[in-house]
Write a protein that binds this DNA or RNA. Sequence first.
DNA 1: ATTGTGGCCTGCCCGC
DNA 2: TGCGGGCAGGCCACAA
Length: 259
Amino acid sequence: MPEILEIEYYRRAGEAALRRPIKKVLMPDGDYLRGVDAAEMRKALKGSLFTTARRRGKLMMLDVDSGPVLGLRFGMTGRLEVDGAGPIEKLEYAPSRQNPEWDRFGVEFADGGTMVVSDPRRLGNVTLDPDLSKMGPDAWTGSVDELTAALGTSTTSLKSRLMDQARWAGLGNLLTDETLWRAGLDPHRGAGKLTKPKIAKLHKTMHAVLNELSERGGSHMGDLQEERSADGRCPKDGAELRREKVGGRTTYWCPKHQS
DNA sequence: ATTGTGGCCTGCCCGC
DNA sequence: TGCGGGCAGGCCACAA
């Protein structure tokens, strides 16, 4: 489920996990660790505490006072729970009922509380010292110039470029569709073919989407969302929405006003 | 290098 | 009610 907005909710929730000594590292699913084994992870966290909760794109990071950085990626169905509660949100596709079997990683604090990553589909992962060099600017804070650079002269579709985390980090399928729909841009349009004013509009629209949907409660709260189904119609002009794969992802868009 | 594709996993929903 | 197919908000390895 999570895109940049949800990861930001998790980051905020993660602030409740700061400055609490870690008593135990919970690793019920060894495969959930990437590039680090259970012993190394335990060594890095046990007896230490988190000092900062950060985020870049869809990557959440918790700085550990002893030096390492814990990286959390949530995949499509991951969620973070601190002291048994997740941030308030509606889970559209992820199972809404919690199941302890889906706990993949966590820590138990000396005070008895916990921070747990639950991920039914196991597409997320946990790392130490995540490599940020292959990640683009954060979509929420990136500038117009950075967006322009991210689009570059690429001939790939605008949609797939916006979702390329190595160029522009944070947008997922829903936020991209909502943004392009509001900006009146055809998702198939060549990424590197936008005029300067179009890029400026895209940037402005994207920020409006992020700020607005963040307040509404998440990536699934877009104006387009409820029409994301068979026979969906454009909320702007009533045209029948197209549903097709763009950049490998199911895409809804309005052929009447997106060009 | 860049771009497209398939696959990873599992749960859920819909139609039969 | 049960079953099978298709779907899923992400990301990575791989091939062309």
